[in-house]
């Protein structure tokens, strides 16, 4: 794997809130085109880490580069090369499907013609051409999720950050959603995803598991299952996360 291109490079990332250390000396690399799972119990520090990587928050210390840009000095450049989808899907409910696409395309500085072209392609691919002019609030949750993901990568970022993208969605829709993620990753997109669902962790190329602000494990799901002598990722997660939680 070492010859692969590194798109996120994190060394000694520390984030403190007063006396509380949310991220304790994180070190990891994410390679181009991989689906990187970022797991951890609530409060383990994964949201803090993802916010730092997206430029929403400054780290206390550490060397970090995202998409080849330094997180302290080149925040604006990073922003143009990443996409972000939050757990709330972040679409405007009172705008139509097309208006949402146009708006998000617009804030990334895409030209109107380019937006129209990409929007058409996107709608055809999702089979959403009929709801082009429907308000978002009239769509089922699974549709919103797919649309939110497609919009997050509309400007063709190098990396897309997905913060618990499958919350509240039924298993079939989740499966379809992962198919979308794979498809995009196969085209060279790097996917950085946080999730609660351990079956989803098994879909990732590599996963890191955080507990108490530290990364306790980082490897392919298969290796982790073997190493921790478990039968599923769920067991791995419980073995890693539980001892810490009981402290």
């Amino acid at each position: 794997m070492s010859e692969r291109e590194i798109v996120i490079r994190v060394r000694n990332l520390v984030k403190k809130f007063g006396n509380f250390t949310a991220n304790d000396n994180l070190c990891f690399d994410v390679y181009k085109g991989e689906v990187f799972g970022f797991l951890g119990a609530n409060g383990a520090g994964k949201t803090t880490a993802i916010r730092i990587l997206c430029g929403l928050m400054a780290p206390t210390s550490g060397e970090i580069s995202v998409a080849g840009f330094d997180i302290y000095r080149e925040t604006e450049k990073i922003k143009r090369h990443i996409g972000y989808m939050s757990q709330k899907f972040s679409l405007y409910e009172d705008l139509t499907v097309y208006e949402n696409i146009r708006f998000y395309g617009g804030i990334y500085g895409l030209r109107r013609k380019e937006i129209a072209k990409r929007a058409d392609a996107l709608l055809v691919r999702l089979g959403f051409s009929e709801v082009r002019n429907s308000l978002i609030k009239s769509l089922p949750l699974g549709w919103k999720q797919k649309l939110a993901f497609s919009i997050a990568i509309l400007h063709r970022p190098d990396i897309v950050f997905l913060d618990e993208p499958t919350g509240g969605v039924d298993p079939i829709t989740r499966r379809q959603f992962w198919d979308m993620i794979y498809e995009s990753a196969s085209e060279g997109l790097t996917v950085f995803v946080t999730t609660h669902y351990m079956d989803e962790a098994e879909y990732c190329d590599r996963v890191s598991i955080m507990a108490d602000g530290r990364i306790e494990a980082l490897d392919t799901p298969l290796n982790l299952i073997k190493y921790y002598n478990a039968s599923t990722m769920d067991e791995v997660f419980v073995k890693i996360a539980r001892p810490v939680q009981q402290l």
């Binding site: 997206c54 430029g55 929403l56 604006e76 922003k79 990443i82 972000y84 972040s90 405007y92 990334y108």
Partner: peptide, 11 residues
């Protein structure tokens, strides 16, 4: 709605 986060991540 969480859209503010998306706006802030944007350029």
């Amino acid at each position: 709605l969480g859209t503010m986060e998306v706006l802030l991540v944007s350029p």
